[in-house]
Design a binder for these strands. Sequence first.
DNA 1: CTTGACCTTCCAACGATGGGAAGGTCTATG
DNA 2: CATAGACCTTCCCATCGTTGGAAGGTCAAG
Lengths: 141, 141
Amino acid sequence: MNIGEASKASGISGKMIRYYESIGLIPSVGRTEAGYRTFSDKDIHTLRFIARARSLGFSVEQMSNLLALWRDSNRASSDVKAVAYAHIEELDSKIEKLIAMRQTLQHLAEHCHGDHRPSCPILGDLAGVPEPVGTPTTADV
Amino acid sequence: MNIGEASKASGISGKMIRYYESIGLIPSVGRTEAGYRTFSDKDIHTLRFIARARSLGFSVEQMSNLLALWRDSNRASSDVKAVAYAHIEELDSKIEKLIAMRQTLQHLAEHCHGDHRPSCPILGDLAGVPEPVGTPTTADV
DNA sequence: CTTGACCTTCCAACGATGGGAAGGTCTATG
DNA sequence: CATAGACCTTCCCATCGTTGGAAGGTCAAG
């Protein structure tokens, strides 16, 4: 299997496969005499593992830990669980931040006439104009 | 006002102020004879606008649009609202993705014993091992 | 043998930010 | 007035994950 086929089989671009190899996330794969990379079934399996982990938002560093645990048949499941929960917490904090932004923006947008007139509470808020009563700002979120 | 004071007054690091100037997000500020940047009250106002927009997750490009609208006293509030809603949609799609990741991961982690034993559904899922019945995978989210 | 699809390596860019070096300026104190 | 230290300047580099492209080698089909 060359890199093109490996890419199709794993869903990871050839560019990224080379990159993952270069940073040592995956071990060096085989080469033909001409220098072409050759991928074994095991390599493909690893790449698919990576693809799945990426889709769950794990960073390269976290994937490196997960791969090490995967390869270690004696790992304790608690170690894996710890990595997973650490990532869940990261996700939670990102989600919270985004929701707070969304909420503030939604509120501002709702109070914007959205017509030809120039007056707009969105710009007002950004420019630091104090809001009228009953229209909380991000500070309240 | 020099860049250090401008930084304190706006909450934007000196590094970033120089960067915003270099990419044209803010107009070139004044200089002393010695080459030090000098910031007017108007410059500070603009920087604070930017700080607030950043805290709402707007990209540099979006901020550029918002600043142009802010400076245009004849803008239609609908234009501002459109930028805001476009950003809300971006936030929504990010939030959805993160929540889906979180949900899958949470589910996997809940079914992981988390003890000394090596067996772990988290690694199992990443490695593509079919899950037992009643334990949906990301595909179901 | 040629063509086109593939592969290789290397270099650069994105977006937003921080780190640091090398050098100039300003201000307060001795 | 000299000097220390806090500030300023520009310039380059690193991050993270990913993509793009150039220049060149290889392979398979016609």
